[in-house]
Design a protein around this nucleic acid. Structure first.
Lengths: 341, 341
DNA sequence: AGGTAATATGTTACCGCTAAAACGAGGATA
DNA sequence: TATCCTCGTTTTAGCGGTAACATATTACCT
């Protein structure tokens, strides 16, 4: 049986092509009676308009491209899960679909990022996968393509972004630890993203310029994957380097939990001997023992908001965006007053 | 600046519309000289053909729909990660893109699954999200739409599938435990999927019909989410019900690890007092202490293979498929001879 | 009643590409 | 030399919609 088209619906319902089209697009200038009669035929044949034809005529694919990092276990990363869920939720509610891509070497080499938008396969791109080496994204500066960095930013490049305010997080964390009297602090940083660098620098700055007296902060890299394992190793390194530190700040909860693990394995009491703090407030943070003090990052919200901005860019309601979403301090059991103060 | 079209390329390169089209589609009947001259212009303008127009004319969107379950932490589930990575890898290598959907209540209610294919937004659908209640999938029986269940199956429905052989896994697991002399066994089952039920039934059957003497197997449900937490609770329940059991079989590794956790918390030695076994062979299985004996399920391969089948269905090389992929026993430290034998 | 405005529907010109069929030029065949 | 292939390219007819514009109908004034 031949696939039905809008023409068949028009013929059978007795209206013209464009009337059917208007009905299908919920145009207000169609009478209820007409709408009902057309819809009856549409329902009868279970008709759905061809999206390619629609896309061609309307110059919009109603599709958003989402690019995620090429980590081994991309989808097992809760960080991504929250972001994607937020994006999906928002996109779907506005009738947009999500086209998924992974920023593999191949993806970059074949310039899929450009192709996707140039071929109008997607109306815009939400990019979750940037690290400090993703300079090919420069093509989107001043380009007509709709592009938003999700929870990242590129200092020096004119790219739209929606991100958690990492500098604010660094300040909150530093103020919390400094306020508890810590003056010998170890920092487990993530250095392969600009937001990670931003966090590190702001944290160091606040600690070193603290009015009531600066702290000595030594930092190490927690590794590319920001993993528990990386945090464990980093904690070991920090404690070997500076055995007398009273607090460890990790750039995310997973590394913080790795550090707590090291403390447990090496009979250091948390928080009595060493306070430990993370960033993100992943679910696990509340379940470890003691509960992990952290900075809450609402990534689901980042997903929602970045998709919102994308939709506004597409509609032309805005021409650029650079949003920093607020974060908040969550105090649990893993941080306490410095034993030295 | 106006967006370039194939017509512009044709004009500038001095060839006709269709020659350019043929070049862009790598048609063999185009001379190298022509190809080069056309491609030079294509490169010059960074031209990519409009995919809607292409889809309309060629009646193919070169897009596959992937539907994942609506779990709270969908993307944090390594199970899905492997599947999606496999699908993505295969699809991308053949020039197909992935359209992501989540099987929310909304998705089902609005019949997005039908709409996606009827509107030709996707050429086929890979469905990862089926549970025993997804009977709306019946619409795809004998339909012209390309549909494949990924790592699931629907007894009684004529739906294509590519899945790991759960019955074979059940046999391997049962044979391993029975061979170690266990005759009082607890089973933590997953009962919200047909494959879970299949596994349970086959496991029970083998244990009860074992030639060297049957085992007593009591089973409990590990919960909807097949989670570590569910496994923990299930283990507690099993041990309260049948304190003298010597082995616990869990329908996946996460629940098995939850059960191991319970044993550790309650000072039961694994495997000396109770052997524990899982299914899947997730990465963590090798890292817990003792290492978890399990049945290896290569989900990445399931992803690859199901996408392969989908592509064959689309090309018309096959008209249906029902593949069961082999599994294998992985013995680590968590299983040992029964203390009673 | 005649003219105008508001509302509802129809006409038509594309949107940018593919693919089947047509075409022309040169070389092989007889 | 006329006929037939073959190869490489062009012609042409859509693919199935959208949206601007045209038109018809009815309502509303004065």
């Amino acid at each position: 049986m031949k696939r039905k088209t809008i023409k068949d619906i028009a013929k059978e319902s007795g209206f013209s092509l464009s009337t059917v089209s208007l009905v299908l697009n919920n145009h207000p200038r169609i009478s209820q009676a007409t709408r009902d009669r057309v819809m009856a035929v549409v329902k009868k044949y279970n008709f759905y308009p061809n999206s390619s034809a629609r896309g061609l005529a309307s110059k919009s694919s109603r599709t958003l491209s989402v690019v995620v990092p090429n980590l081994t276990r991309v989808f097992s990363d809760i960080y991504l899960g929250e972001l994607i869920s937020g994006i999906y939720e928002r996109a779907t509610s506005q009738g947009y679909k999500i086209l998924l891509d992974i920023a593999t070497a191949q993806f970059v080499k074949t310039q899929e990022y450009a192709k996707l938008l140039a071929s109008r396969r997607a109306d815009g791109m939400l990019f979750i996968a940037s690290d400090i080496h993703a300079d090919y994204l420069g093509v989107f500066e001043d380009s007509p393509y709709k592009f938003v960095l999700v929870n990242h930013l590129f200092p020096g490049k004119k790219l739209n972004y929606v991100s958690v305010d990492y500098a604010a997080s660094a300040r909150l964390a530093a103020e919390h630890l400094m306020g508890l009297g810590h003056r010998r602090i170890g920092l487990i940083a993530g250095t392969n993203t600009f937001t990670g660098l931003l966090f590190r620098d702001e944290f160091l700055r606040v600690c070193k310029t603290w009015p009531a007296g600066p702290a000595q902060v030594s930092w190490v890299d927690g590794g590319e994957e920001w993993s528990q394992r990386g945090g464990y190793a980093a904690a070991a390194k920090l404690m070997a380097q500076t055995p007398d530190l009273t607090a460890i700040m990790a750039a995310n909860d997973r590394m913080a939990i790795g550090a707590m693990r090291w403390m447990a394995d090496n009979r250091r009491e948390v928080p009595e001997e060493v306070s430990i703090m993370g960033v993100d407030d992943i679910q696990l943070a509340a379940y470890v023992n003691p509960g992990l003090s952290t900075i809450r990052h609402d990534l689901y919200q980042v997903g929602i908001e970045s998709c919102n901005r994308m939709l506004q860019l597409i509609k032309g309601e805005i021409t650029e965006c650079s949003d920093l979403l607020p974060t908040s301090l969550v105090v649990r059991g893993s941080t306490a007053h410095s034993r030295l103060s």
